[in-house]
Nucleic acid binder design. Structure first.
Lengths: 340, 340
DNA sequence: CGTCGCTGTGGGACCGTTCCCATCCCACCG
DNA sequence: CGGTGGGATGGGAACGGTCCCACAGCGACG
């Protein structure tokens, strides 16, 4: 409550006006880059601000502009998983880089359970932030839809399941799976299996589609397919299925690193060598990929760049909420390690 | 900028006053739990607020109270590492739980490099947040000291290196190391080595001290000691050192999970079985611990509880900046897995 | 030479709270 | 029965910006 009163520093626009010898209106104009200020006055104000280290009062500005200068970073992941991902770290770093020079606050908001979700919705409805960044791989989340309907600027990381009038930023999963397949083909592998993700999620669909299309493009028949849910644990079951199917394979594309980790363990249990007997490629380039043994070859998303695009898109939307939807899809990159 | 105008919902205290049939002063009093309002009026206002779903305007309130209703969560970790830790996830969850019901914003702030650090400092100085939560294991960080000197409420997670007039919340590292040692002793191991952390960090010091003290308490002579820097990679060197020392050992306490991961790999390379030949205990219970093979027995901190305490301490400090320092140290817990 | 218009500037209302202060009412006491 | 004091209440000034509007100054043009 008690703020240290820096008696030396000017805290109001009026004081700056006095220092610069102009009216507070002119100072305000300079602060907001409004045209119609003489170069002389502009310079006068600028140097007064420079000299005093003045920063405008957020609250006062917010009160009249009805903008908060904050955007919400909603993490609607039930598990801790999203944090345990370098994905999240890079996301935050990218968003921060965009937001910091503008003095916009990145407000962290968790939606762990239904109650939190309800509270959050109520909160966002009251305009406590100017817009929302969704860093959620959980495509079924109803929150984005609701907020879009309420006309709150929203941008998603990851393509939404259904046709939703919302901008998003995503990695090209189809191309990513293609990269993986082509890498395996280049290594001379011809019998390529896959552990696919859940088919009710865009990422799951696209990665499987990229797999089959890339093989088709090279005239290679796809090997056996099993399904997991992207998470740790589900990959083991799928791997067992593949092995039980009897269909031979010397290459394996797994739609997530976490499942690939399971796959590696199961392969080892079955005394199959990686990469000699089976070359394995994952997806995500999560922290698990480097910690795996052997270290996992995987498909990386340019997350930081994506985060910047995401944030910029949101800021655009906040400036003009009626602008048309603009989504961006980024190209992935193959990171080669010891598993291929 | 353009906020959806919910024409139906009252947005001002005046409107609530009209609905309740009182003056805006009385509404304000009810909102702030100020005494001196008749029960009748209080109830009238309460139900008016309830009925309309009114929420006071942050900016207007902030303007006059000179408090922002936001606290900064400063992550002053250069690497992405802190995010990749369930530690961080739990930290955020704990802080959120405290902060959400109070309508206080948790503003995420990164201090990746020196430039960011300078900007951040400048920013915090201008009172854009009411207080700062430091989630930084990096004890040498000068930021807390500066902010304390500027009289900005600050609370640290992790004991600071030097005597700093600041509250902190930490896990009892000495006791944690003790748990690890006692566990190994119970398993019948008598020759116990350790890979200690850096001795210029409190956590490094305490974990080594706990190790030696616990052994001394049981009259067991400590085995060889090697040092790492807590990070991935440094554990391998230390492990090699221990093996090269020639001193035999059947138990190993490693001061961080990441180093323990390295140790496991080196032990495997040397054809030593875990836990048969060497039982290994880590520290932190990071995500790496469960992903290790064999899964790592380790010492866990009650992070979420610690985060709550951290946040509550900060809020207390904001309320009364001159209150005496109050730090809390939490007891750790041993999590037994396959490596012992 | 008067008027018009245009650029640059300043004054002041307003945003939605809090909080100080004045006022009112009522009970109690001398 | 008038005076007093204290609790409840309301009015209005502030908080520090933005932005509308009025107006000064000045060159151009009829």
């Amino acid at each position: 409550m008690v703020r240290p009163t820096d008696s030396t520093q000017p805290r109001t626009i009026k004081e700056i006006a006095a220092v610069a010898g102009v009216s507070k209106s002119t100072v305000s104009r300079v602060l907001n880059d409004t045209p119609g200020v003489s170069p002389k006055a502009r310079e006068l104000v600028r140097s007064a601000i420079e000299a005093t280290g003045y920063q405008p009062n957020r609250a006062a500005r917010s009160l009249v502009t009805r903008a908060t200068g904050s955007i919400g970073l909603v993490v609607s992941e039930a598990h801790a998983r999203i944090f345990s991902d370098p994905f999240f770290a890079s996301m935050v770093r990218g968003a921060t880089q965009v937001v910091r020079p503008l003095g916009i606050h990145l407000v962290l908001m968790l939606a762990e359970d239904q109650r939190a979700r309800d509270q959050l919705l109520e909160y966002l409805r009251h305009g406590h932030v100017d817009g929302v960044l969704f860093v959620s791989t959980h495509a079924a989340d109803p929150l984005p839809r609701i907020l879009v309907a309420e006309r709150l600027p929203v941008v998603l990381s990851g393509r939404p399941v259904s046709r939703l009038q919302v901008s998003y930023v995503d990695v090209d999963s189809v191309a990513g799976a293609g990269l993986a397949v082509e890498h395996l083909l280049e290594l001379g592998r011809r019998r390529i299996a896959t552990i696919a993700g859940p088919q009710d999620m865009p990422a799951g669909q696209d990665r499987l589609r990229g797999f089959t299309e890339a093989l088709a493009a090279h005239g290679v028949r796809p090997g056996p397919v099993a399904y997991g849910d992207f998470d740790r644990g589900s990959g083991a079951r799928a791997m067992e299925e593949l092995l039980a199917s009897g269909a031979p394979f010397d290459g394996l594309f797994v739609a997530s690193d976490l499942m690939a980790l399971d796959a590696l363990a199961v392969l080892r249990e079955h005394a199959l060598r990686v990469p000699e007997d089976v070359a394995v490629v994952g997806f995500d380039d999560s922290v698990a990929a480097t910690q795996a043994r052997p270290a996992l070859t995987t498909v990386r998303q340019p997350v930081e760049e994506m985060a910047k695009a995401l944030t910029l898109t949101l800021l655009d939307r906040i400036k003009d909420p009626d602008a048309p939807i603009t989504s961006r899809v980024f190209p992935p990159k193959l990171v080669r390690r010891a598993s291929t």
